[in-house]
């Protein structure tokens, strides 16, 4: 799925990373707990979250993710946007809640990668 398709499906606003909209991503995860993202996520390219602080961007960077979607109309700070730009990540915001946003992407083919927690 192209990032531009995520923008359309979630009626999202592109905060940064306009040049990445035609990039393909193959899986995603949704969590407000960065500890869990670090523990359980593997090779997911998109992070959907309702948590808004700089550690979200750093966590995504550590996991080699390329796109962050902030749900529930959360707005990232200038500092966070700058961090994301430096790391070459696209940042989107949507009014949808986490469950709905994940669901819309999932039914349209963006999978979760199906790994169990401890693999």
């Amino acid at each position: 799925m192209k990032i531009s398709e995520i923008v359309n499906l979630l009626d999202a606003k592109v905060i940064c990373g306009d040049d990445m909209l035609e990039n393909d991503v193959f899986s995603a995860c949704g969590s407000d707990m960065m500890s869990d993202v670090l523990a359980y996520v593997k090779d997911q390219a998109v992070l959907l979250t309702g948590l808004v602080n700089s550690q979200v961007i750093r966590t995504a960077e550590m996991m080699d993710m390329v796109c962050i979607v902030f749900v529930r109309s959360k707005q990232p700070s200038e500092e966070m946007i700058e961090l994301a730009r430096e790391s070459g990540m696209a940042v989107l915001t949507t009014d949808l809640r986490l469950y709905e946003a994940c669901g819309k992407l999932y039914v349209n083919g963006l999978i979760g990668n199906g790994r169990k927690s401890h693999e």
Partner: peptide, 8 residues
């Protein structure tokens, strides 16, 4: 803040 889940 998204941490403190006992996973560190």
């Amino acid at each position: 803040l998204g941490f403190g889940a006992g996973m560190g």
